[in-house]
């Protein structure tokens, strides 16, 4: 039986409702480390059925938030629940939630296979799940080697395997792309999107914004422990697109620049044939060039990406605390 078949079978009995949907709800979550407020009154929701990216500069409080969500760190105040329950209150947590956190490791002398088997024994899962997940993450060849010999990417894959042991409804991954090779990153993207499309809840923290843009449907952006923004990537980028600069290539830059300036645009000429135009839309520039008879070889708007949005949103608080 495939993992996914098992999943849909089990879905009926999973907590969080008859369809097994387990949203993550974080409410007023706060963690104080002495003077430092690592997480500051954070509120957001992660809905099932989509991949949610969890973004923020170094030290923003992502890992701390995930650890509170998983019952490893006690919040100073606020709550974080999975399918309406605290992680610690889930009767069989690994069958509901799979998690990979940074600074989580295996015993250096234990083999990857035995690492997973120990988890199966402790949680009452079939021992064969160890091999099934090893196969799934492509770690079979190294299964019987001690963990201390694993490369960073292999460790990351072992972590993902351990998260998948209980075939969970919810996946929480802290920088899983860290150390993965391009093939591994693509594999993980396919995996996570596949899992989300089955109705599972997927929350992934990452620094790799271009990867996040390809992977996530929605993002939660935190800065200095506070929520900076939550929404779909398109919604977050859209406001930044208004008034975005347009690049134009033309053999007669001076003529076009003059025409654009008289239409009210701000124009710079970075090099011989290119113009950078602000304050006037792409289509209007095309029309204007046509009306003054200047040929245009290339015309495009510098669409902001997630990285631009991220830097704009977190700029004020990006400094490491």
């Amino acid at each position: 039986m495939t993992i996914h078949a098992q999943a849909s079978e089990r879905r009926h009995t999973a907590p969080g409702g008859p369809d097994g949907q387990s949203p993550i709800v974080v409410r007023g979550l706060t963690k104080q480390y002495g003077e430092l407020t690592a997480v500051d009154d954070l509120t957001f929701t992660v809905t099932p059925g989509r991949v949610t990216g969890f973004l923020g500069p170094n030290g923003a409080g992502k890992t701390t938030t995930l650890r509170m969500l998983l019952g490893l760190v006690a919040p100073t105040s606020g709550t974080a629940t999975i399918g309406d329950r605290l992680y610690a209150d889930l009767p069989e947590p690994t069958r509901v939630v799979g998690a990979v956190l940074e600074a989580s490791s295996a015993h250096r002398g234990r083999t990857g296979r035995n690492h997973l088997r120990a988890a199966c024994i402790a949680t009452g899962l079939e021992i064969s799940r160890a091999d099934a997940t090893l196969e799934m993450v492509g770690l079979m060849a190294a299964a019987d080697r001690p963990f201390k010999g694993y490369s960073l990417g292999m460790r990351q894959r072992l972590g993902i395997a351990s998260a998948m042991l209980g075939d969970p409804d919810v996946l929480i991954l802290d920088e899983p792309a860290n150390g993965l090779d391009p093939e591994g990153i693509r594999w993980m993207r396919t995996l996570l999107q596949g899992l989300a499309s089955e109705g599972r809840t997927v929350l992934v923290s990452s620094h790799l914004l271009s990867e996040m843009q390809a992977l996530a449907d929605e993002v939660v952006i935190v800065a200095a422990g506070r929520l900076a923004r939550q929404g779909s990537i398109d919604d977050i980028i859209a406001p930044l697109s208004i008034g975005a600069p347009v690049q134009v290539s033309t053999p007669q830059p001076e003529r076009l620049a003059a025409a654009l300036r008289s239409a009210g645009a701000t124009v710079t000429i970075p090099n011989g044939t290119a113009l950078r135009v602000l304050g006037i839309e792409e289509s209007l520039i095309g029309d204007l060039a046509f009306s003054v008879g200047v040929p245009v070889h290339r015309l495009y708007t510098e669409t902001p990406d997630l990285e631009d949005a991220f830097l704009t949103l977190t700029h004020a608080e990006a400094a490491i605390r």
Binding site: L72, A88, S104, S105, R108, T123, S162
Partner: peptide
């Protein structure tokens, strides 16, 4: 060995 996270995730 930094396995506490792993262990306590299985058994909170």
């Amino acid at each position: 060995q930094q396995t506490a996270t792993f262990t306590f995730l299985q058994t909170p």
